[in-house]
Design a protein around this nucleic acid. Structure first.
Lengths: 162, 162
DNA sequence: CTCGATGCATAACTATGGTATATATTTGCG
DNA sequence: CGCAAATATATACCATAGTTATGCATCGAG
């Protein structure tokens, strides 16, 4: 039982990763590679979770801090994000989304609706429900980390924070 | 009704993309960035779908052909893939997974089980079912394309192939 | 006050993706 | 059958995304 269950879950996760990777690529190609995935991911996180520090945004995106610094450099140049000194710590900066960034994000969403949604146009409602539930699960599991599961399970970590 | 439904679906797809992107990054970081995502994605596709041409593999991965050529160059160097001339067309090559590649894929799966599964350890069975269903949907929708939805819907395209 | 920890930038590197182009081969049409 | 268009892949060049290592300034705890 446990053996069968473990194999199934590994397979599920494997396929989830492969399909996730493909989906991200599908979206990029369907949109003509107009907006790099790192950009829309970052804007979407800022839009959903609000302004935050560079390191926090890196953690939320699951990339390294220097990588995020570099990415934000370009986005700052393009006027997509704000950088303001953090009053609580003069080493830190708070990154927020600008109106231009919001417009860009909205534009990307329109592109999504036009280019990617048709791929899912004929899904029955039950399938949409499954996707929505999965998104909720993944959102919870991929949210900003404070501890790895080796130290504590995600659910336990949330209890400790509360 | 239609307006409300369209917005919800766009939001669902947006969040699906963001969580997908994060999940791919989470897996990479959890595994110590040991196996690049493009490599495991490629090996997993070859393992699941069998040997195929360079261009087919590029399409299956949703990347450009020259990009796939480059990636395969490195994988070939590492002994992960085979390249054999396609008897049906002397321009083409058939790419397959080697035993070394299979081992590498198995190793990656082990790493998945060890590093990523704990993040999902406390999921109830209903949530696993939702993930599995979503994976099935995404696998179907991201499978090797023969037509874009603008021309025909994915389901219709499958009927035409049958 | 001191020292270890932390936040971010920079440097150097590798990997992943794109488009454009070239060459050889295949296919389809007249 | 011949020819032109289409196709398969490699190469070149470019930009971006990611990493680790490092440096410097600042913070926080003892």
């Amino acid at each position: 039982m446990v053996y069968i269950c473990a194999v199934t879950r590994t397979q599920t996760l494997e396929q989830l990763l492969v399909t996730s990777s493909r989906l991200v690529r599908l979206a990029a190609q369907a949109a003509g590679n107009a907006t790099p995935s790192a950009v829309w991911r970052t804007l979407s996180i800022l839009d959903a979770e609000g302004a935050m520090r560079v390191g926090e945004l890196a953690a939320a995106s699951r990339v390294s801090q220097p990588g995020m610094t570099r990415l934000l450099g370009g986005m700052d140049d393009d006027g997509l994000v704000t950088r303001s000194a953090d009053a609580a710590d003069s080493r830190a900066f708070i990154i927020g989304i600008t109106p231009v960034g919001r417009e860009a994000l909205a534009g990307w969403r329109d592109t999504l609706a036009r280019t990617l949604e048709p791929w899912f146009a004929d899904l029955p409602d039950a399938d949409w429900a499954a996707l929505e539930r999965s998104v909720a699960i993944l959102a919870e599991r991929t949210a900003s980390p404070t501890a790895s599961p080796a130290a504590t399970s995600p659910a336990t970590a949330q209890e400790e924070r509360a």
